[in-house]
């Protein structure tokens, strides 16, 4: 956001360090250079004009079910949330530890594979998908 609170570049999945580069295949350096160029020179990358679409009704309902589930640990609402937004990390991966699962385990890699196969859907600036699989 600039000095006038205008959103210069919408949200994107980025990395602040290379801690997980081996896992993700993504280095933080490109993004860090983008941020530096914007702060110092006011330069913005081409993808900054990307329009982020709002959630559809299923995605909104999924978040509301997840909100109830996070408060009550209701398995019914966890399931409803996942049914409505099956590829949404904010819901499906965040549910894993709350349901006794492992957000770094087999179920996460299954989710990631489904996510990649679906074209990596994301409400933000799309990026190349990192190579990440069960055997990596």
């Amino acid at each position: 956001m600039d000095e006038n609170d205008t959103i210069v570049r919408p949200n994107a999945g980025e990395f602040g360090s290379d801690t997980f580069s081996e896992l993700t295949g993504i280095s933080c350096i490109d993004h860090m250079n983008q941020v530096k160029a914007w702060v110092k020179e006011g330069e913005v990358p081409e993808d900054a004009s990307h329009t982020v679409e709002d959630f559809n009704l299923d995605e909104i309902k999924a978040r509301l079910h997840f909100r109830i589930a996070a408060d009550t640990r209701s398995e019914y609402h966890f399931q409803k949330a996942e049914e409505l937004a099956p590829l949404d990390f904010t819901i499906v991966r965040a549910s894993m530890p709350l349901r006794g699962g492992n957000p770094f385990g087999e179920e996460f890699f299954d989710l990631y594979e489904r996510y990649q196969n679906a074209g990596s859907p994301y409400h933000g600036i799309p990026r190349r998908t990192a190579r990440l699989g069960k055997n990596d």
Binding site: L57, L64, I68, S74
Partner: peptide, 21 residues
């Protein structure tokens, strides 16, 4: 938008819809 759970006496409400859009 809202999701109501009558049995639990809970309502989750998306109060950010206008702000977000």
């Amino acid at each position: 938008s809202n999701v109501l759970d009558v049995e639990l006496g809970l309502a989750a409400v998306d109060t950010f819809s206008l702000l977000r859009s």
